[in-house]
């Protein structure tokens, strides 16, 4: 496994549609995830991006890192904008004003843009059944504005608005389960991914793009700045998230659950929490509490994979 990255870089296309030279922090695995999604989708795509780190670092007027058509309108409406682009294109094709090229419509946003402020717009676009793909880059906080908590911030994590205080030990709520919310819309495809598992990620994004109707991919996107880890540890921490069961990699195709990166024996959550500054203050009791929850949720997921649909 040590040579994995060398191996990966040979098998994944060298073509870049999200180019180097962007302004992300050193070691940003969110930018890496964006790059992989761009590789997976190729040139025939129209991207609608939410406000957030990935928008700011890639589009300082008059420069752009986007070699594909890209639009940013606001923070909470990427799904609506993508659905408008899809609908407009569909109408123009039907009326003979555009040639049908099978273009993919991608909406993208951070965890804040997706599971908080943009949840309604995303839910609406899912429900209306647009033929589009939405990717959530989940770095578990509002990083662009300075590491404030979101509903995707995990229990116990210290952020600038869920600080580890003398009375309150960081985030007191459990991470909102956004993939499950997507599944509840009965859309044909939902998956989780992480840039520490590039093949799994690329495969899922390709599949999501090829499916008719709405698809959702939720990517755990490690943010060294916000998680308080060294810049060279992002990939490693992403693996730990999966190996501990904190962030399982799975897909739900037409309601059928499948774990794509199986972890026969989960590592203790401590292996994931300990290296991160945002969890530094956690007591053994709180870690135990997190362990119980993670084990339970992982088992729930396993049960779902055995369900007939």
């Amino acid at each position: 496994m040590e040579q994995f990255n060398v191996y990966a870089s040979r098998l994944i296309t060298k073509k870049e549609h999200f180019t180097p030279g962007h302004r992300a922090c050193q070691g940003c695995a969110e930018a890496l995830a964006v790059r992989m999604v761009a590789k997976a989708l190729g040139k025939n795509v129209i991207v609608a991006s939410a406000t957030g780190c990935m928008e700011i670092i890639s589009s300082p007027l008059p420069f752009t890192n986007w070699k594909v058509p890209w639009i940013h309108v606001a923070f909470e409406n990427a799904a609506a904008v993508a659905s408008g682009a899809e609908a407009g294109t569909k109408a123009l094709i039907r009326k003979g004003k555009l040639v049908d090229k099978g273009t993919v419509f991608l909406g993208m946003g951070g965890d804040g843009a997706t599971s908080d402020i943009g949840l309604q717009a995303l839910s609406g676009a899912f429900e209306r059944g647009h033929n589009f793909l939405y990717v959530c880059y989940d770095n578990e906080a509002y990083m662009n504005t300075g590491i404030q908590r979101s509903s995707a911030t995990p229990f116990g994590a210290a952020t600038t608005t869920s600080p580890a205080g003398k009375q309150i030990p960081g985030q007191v709520t459990w991470k909102k389960n956004m993939p499950e919310i997507a599944v509840a819309h009965n859309i044909p495809y939902v998956a989780t991914a992480c840039s520490s598992y590039p093949f799994d990620l690329i495969q899922k994004v390709k599949k999501a793009a090829s499916i008719k109707g709405p698809a959702y991919v939720h990517i755990l996107s490690i943010c060294p700045t916000g998680w308080r880890i060294p810049a060279d540890k992002a990939i490693w921490i992403g693996r730990r998230a999966v190996e501990t069961g904190v962030f399982p990699l799975y897909e739900v195709e037409n309601g059928k659950y499948r774990i794509t990166v199986d972890v026969p024996e989960l590592r203790p959550v401590e292996d994931y929490l300990k290296p991160q500054g945002r969890f530094r203050h956690l007591t053994p009791e709180l870690i135990e509490k997190i362990q119980t929850r993670v084990t339970k949720e992982y088992n729930n997921l396993k049960t779902k994979t055995k369900l007939e649909t």
């Binding site: 639009i71 309108v73 904008v81 993508a82 899809e86 609908a87 407009g88």
Partner: peptide, 11 residues
């Protein structure tokens, strides 16, 4: 927002 997306593709 939908209007922005659809107008941007030329509809």
């Amino acid at each position: 927002s939908v209007c922005c997306g659809s107008s941007a593709v030329g509809a």
